[in-house]
Structures are given as C-alpha cells and as structure tokens.
Nucleic acid binder design. Structure first.
Lengths: 144, 144
DNA sequence: ATTATTGCAAAGACTTTGCAACTCC
DNA sequence: GGAGTTGCAAAGTCTTTGCAATAAT
C-alpha cells in the first residue's frame, strides 16, 4: 500500500526502483520532522545497515532534483528534507531547531494573489518559500 | 563618514572596535551581493592580508548573534550574509546562485496584517523570511 | 545485456575550536 | 592592567567524488 505508492513515485520520476531509494523515501515520508541527511542515514541504516552514506546523499540529491522531495532552508548550514511537495509553509523555532509544517490556504492565496498582481521588474517568480520564525508556546505544558 | 557609522554600529552592539571587525562590516556593507564567508574573506584579505580566516568566521558569527547583520538562507548549505537589517525580501535565481534584495512595502504590509489577524496555534511569530524564487529575465540583454 | 546504481573510502569544502599572543578600553 | 580579541593551525562536520562491483530493466 504505502510501499506501492513509494515505488510508484520513484518510477514516475523515471528512476529505477532500488531498495536504497525505497528505504530513503520511506524514511522521509514516515517522519514529519524535516530530518537532516544524518538523521535519515540513521533511520535508514537501522533497517539496512549496509546502505552506504554516500549513496544516501546521492539519492537525496537525485530526489531533490527530480522534485520528489524538497530541501528545507535552514540558518545553520545543514540540509534538511521534506517529503511533502504540496504547497505549505514552515514554522521555525528560535529556541531549538524544530521546524513544523504550517498549512494555511489563506496565506498561500494571499501570496499567490500578490504575485499575480505585482510585477517584479526583470524577475519572474516560479516558486516561493515562507519561513515563520518564533516560539512554540506550549512546550512546557507537556510537563504536566 | 561611512567609517564612523561602521564603528558606531560595532560600539552600539557593545563590542570593542577592532580593525578586523571594521574590515568585515565594511566589506559586507559595500556589497549588495549577499556574499558567502569565503567571499568576505577574499575581500577582507585584499586589504588586510593578515586577518585570519577563523577570526572572520568568529566575527560574522558575533555580528549575527548581535543582529548587526543577518544570515540569508540558501538551499545549498553555505552561509551567506546581509548587512541590511531593515525588513526586506529576497529574489533567488534558479539559474545561478544570485540573490537580490527586493523591497516592497506592500508585501511586507500584507504579511504583517496576515500575522496580526491569524492566530497560529501554539506559535508566536516574531520574524519571518520570504524567498521569491525564479529567473532574472534580462540576463541576455547584456549581450547586446 | 546494458546501463544505472551502489559501496567504499578517500578527498573536499566549509566551519569550529583551543590557546598563546596581542590589543583595545 | 585586564578582559576581550586575534592568529594560527589543527580538528571537526557535512558532503561529494571516482571507480570497480553489483543490480535493475
């Protein structure tokens, strides 16, 4: 089921289906925490200890280029990845390095409308990213 | 004149004024190209060949922490810096790694209003970054 | 069978660190 | 004078690369 979807995604991109690619994409789909390459490597190697680090980097790179996944921007220079390709935004914690998904059709619409109306001189926008930076308010609640 | 402003900025942040810090801030202020640490090092060392690489990294880090400058997010994991601290946005070229400043009060206002109205559950936004990704249209014009 | 993909290990790129020497206030 | 900074070089972290071996179509 899930496995089938994963294979399909890889195939649709014109890539060969390999256990390595399945493992990487699976790991990424089954998390919502926007992991670093390192974290993906850890998860993948739990199940397939023989998959090479370099391979995982290569796969991630290939997936990004073919838009199966996306890179999430970070301030510190460590790549993080996201298996969700539909339009959404991100909440960045300033206290730790947590990044959460943020869906709001209204915000998306707002920006889309803006981009339609305003003509930026000499520049054609094909995509955009919005980072909302701040604090998660209820971290402490978990203690009770 | 410029030099005086630069010194003042450093002083205002509670830092000692050193030739190294002046050189780094000067280099950053006198460019609009959002340079990498490497590019800053190159510029700085043209004038002061004895300034150490590690020092420049340290200074950049200090400046970012004290908000004299900001980091610009990138997809590839190389830090880039920006001496402009007033609110503005960025245009990212997909063809090369050019990043240009984009000022539009209307866009800023749009987002500010949105953030005032919409209450994001469990999250308080203190800052945001917008990346507009696309192509600079007139690259070719330069050829004529 | 053919070509893409992987494993491995080494190299590369970028950044951080520790500490003695130095310099700004 | 004394705390804050710097220079240096080494180490650290993250990522890329080259190529023979392997696996997918």
């Amino acid at each position: 089921m899930k496995e089938k979807n994963i294979k399909q995604k890889i195939k649709d991109a014109g890539l060969r289906i390999t256990p390595q690619r399945i493992a990487v994409l699976e790991a990424l789909i089954n998390t919502n925490s926007h992991p670093t390459a390192d974290q993906i490597i850890e998860v993948v190697q739990k199940g397939h200890s023989n998959i090479a680090v370099g391979t995982i980097y290569n796969i991630l790179d290939t997936f990004v280029k073919l838009k199966i996944i996306t890179k999430v921007n970070t301030d510190n220079n460590i790549a993080r990845f996201d298996a969700i390709t539909e339009q959404h935004h991100h909440l960045y914690s300033i206290d730790d390095d947590k990044i959460e998904d943020y869906y709001d059709e209204k915000l998306t619409q707002l920006i889309d409308d803006y981009l339609k109306e305003s003509n930026i001189p000499n520049f054609r926008v094909t995509n955009y990213k919005i980072q909302l930076i701040g604090n998660f308010a209820d971290n402490d609640k978990k203690r009770f």
